[in-house]
């Protein structure tokens, strides 16, 4: 599967980040199989597994690692200047519902209510890239929320704004101050989240329309009172 990650450099000239990238690629595919098996198990065993806290932790953590690996690969391609946004028109409510469906088993398992609010609008973005950062954000919200998550889209100032909100503690002040962390000074307490935000910010930035560029915004509060993640797409 990893053949398209190798290039024709001299064999002796070992490119370590490329080696890591193809290893990550491989791990990610394995995790994808693992996640699929978890979904199957849940289908087969029904309620007893769905309620199981340990099973839900297993799925959450696997999903998290999977998301991290996808991000790592994205960052690798970003650094190699090979990540571009393939922007096309998408029907926003359908797109958001699909993102939510990905997390349905875990949401059900943890008894989390999830609301989707979007009018019948269409937006312009790369569905894989934006889907990727929403997957991670929703997974993150599942971890930090108490009981509710809201996924919403609106149009504001000529931007399409997609937001993920929860009723948890909200983001710590440092993150609100600087949503695009410097990756050279990674804080291991928030490591994965910082990585996620860095990637989300980079992906938003790849979306351009005329002079305007996409970005992310973090805040606390709103109707649910917890953290709110927003991606603004021009």
């Amino acid at each position: 599967m990893a053949e398209h990650l190798t290039d024709s450099r001299d064999d002796n000239d070992l490119n370590f980040s490329m080696v890591i990238a193809s290893a990550v690629h491989d791990m990610k595919n394995s995790l994808s199989m693992l996640l699929h098996s978890l979904d199957e198990l849940r289908e087969e065993h029904g309620p007893e597994l769905t309620e199981s806290k340990r099973f839900n932790t297993l799925q959450y953590e696997a999903q998290r690692v999977h998301g991290d690996l996808v991000q790592l690969l994205g960052l690798y391609r970003l650094q190699e200047d090979k990540l571009t946004a393939h922007v096309d028109e998408h029907h926003v409510p359908d797109f958001l519902a699909l993102q939510l469906a990905r997390h349905q088993p875990l949401l059900d398992g943890r008894n989390i209510q999830c609301a989707l609010q979007s009018s019948e609008i269409s937006g312009y973005f790369d569905q894989d890239l934006i889907g990727g950062i929403l997957t991670n954000t929703i997974n993150n919200a599942i971890r930090y929320t108490r009981s509710q998550i809201s996924l919403a889209a609106r149009e504001e100032d000529g931007y399409l704004v997609i937001s993920v909100a929860d009723d948890g503690q909200g983001y710590p002040q440092e993150m609100l101050d600087d949503p695009k962390p410097c990756l050279n000074s990674l804080d291991f307490d928030t490591g994965s989240t910082s990585l996620g935000l860095y990637f989300a910010s980079s992906v938003a930035h790849l979306h351009k329309n005329g002079q305007r560029t996409g970005f992310i915004r973090l805040c606390n509060g709103g109707p649910l009172g917890g953290g709110i993640f927003e991606v603004w797409l021009p």
Binding site: M33, H36, D39, A97, L98, A101, P105, D128
Partner: peptide
């Protein structure tokens, strides 16, 4: 359709 695929996703995507 990108793996992993669960039932809810297939339902939504295929439905659309």
């Amino acid at each position: 359709l990108t793996k992993p695929i669960n039932r809810a996703m297939l339902d939504k995507r295929l439905g659309d």
